[in-house]
């Protein structure tokens, strides 16, 4: 679908509503495209965002229950324990927070897919972390059950095995993409993740490569929130930064339609 390009004047007029999240999905998509190209509007948006942060102070103040502090810090302490373990070959390129997420994702896959997950589990050699993972059951439960949602990422025809990974979404704008089964690329190429808006426009959500065992794990952050997107696709693009819009063949993807209608 061809979309009318926003002029700078119109974009500038609609920027306050965009910052407030008060535009309809299609108008938001047009604005996101303009922002990608316009440094003036990006700076303008940054200043409006600052104002919106300040606006959050103007509410009656009330303290949360003391128990909440204990729960948050217990979770953090559990995660801190996990991430102190030594790096492993399959994980060493990931920052430590991503390793914690990966460990969580591994346990999630285990629950959901049985035998396949056992294989992953063994190959990642995280047996030493089993105890720590058990301590993290609350953590896993929150990503799984807290209006969390996941979908299998399926390969396009002719790309080998049909399921090449999973996408796990948390409430808001954050998700974890776990890839297991995309072929390693030649040097100079990367896989690029695209989030697909309701009107079929694409927004880049980052690039990645896979290791020799065809795996990768990355955090995917949606501009705005997940509800603005109907799907996710992966293409092969020139590295290291990828492309502004998809140019290479689509190799895999998944629908976010269920998430849009309310998720789990």
């Amino acid at each position: 679908m061809e979309r009318r390009q926003l002029t700078h004047e119109i974009a500038s007029e609609e920027l306050p509503a965009f910052a407030l999240g008060a535009l309809d999905a299609e108008d938001s998509a047009g604005m996101a495209e303009h922002l990608a190209e316009c440094p003036f509007c990006r700076e303008d948006l940054r200043q409006l965002d600052d104002v919106l942060g300040l606006l959050g102070t103007v509410v009656p103040q009330e303290a949360p229950s003391p128990g909440l502090r204990d729960r948050v810090l217990a979770r953090v302490a559990a995660e801190a324990g996990v991430t102190r373990t030594a790096d492993r070959p399959a994980l060493r390129l990931l920052p430590r927070w991503a390793q914690a997420v990966l460990a969580t994702a591994a346990a999630l896959v285990l629950v959901l897919t049985g035998a396949v997950a056992m294989l992953l589990y063994g190959q990642w050699q995280i047996r030493r972390e089993l105890d720590a993972l058990r301590a993290e059951q609350g953590e896993i439960a929150s990503i799984l059950a807290q209006p969390a949602w996941w979908a299998p990422v399926t390969a396009e025809a002719g790309q080998g095995q049909p399921v090449v990974g999973r996408l796990y979404l948390q409430e808001g704008d954050t998700g974890v993409l776990v890839i297991d089964g995309l072929a390693p690329l030649v040097p100079g190429q990367v896989y690029q993740v695209w989030l697909i808006r309701a009107d079929n426009t694409r927004v880049s959500a980052g690039v990645f490569t896979v290791d020799a065992s065809q795996r990768a794990t990355l955090i995917v952050t949606a501009p705005g929130t997940w509800t603005a997107y109907q799907g996710m696709g992966i293409t092969i693009e020139p590295g290291p930064a990828g492309s502004p819009g998809p140019t290479g063949p689509r190799v895999a993807g998944c629908s976010l339609a269920d998430w849009q209608s309310g998720g789990l």
Binding site: R46, D49, D50, L52, G53, L54, L55, G56, T57, P64, L68, R71, V72, R75, V76, E79, P95, W97, A100, V101, S142, Q146, Q170, E171, G172, T174, I219, T221
Partner: peptide, 30 residues
């Protein structure tokens, strides 16, 4: 629940804040 998620996200992904700059308090409220 939201409060817990906000602080856990800060713990897991502190770089998301640093990348955006600006004071922490208003950023957390956003």
């Amino acid at each position: 629940d939201v409060t817990q998620e906000v602080f856990l996200q800060l713990w897991r992904e502190p770089q998301r804040y640093l990348e955006e700059r600006g004071p922490l308090g208003p950023w957390l409220l956003r």
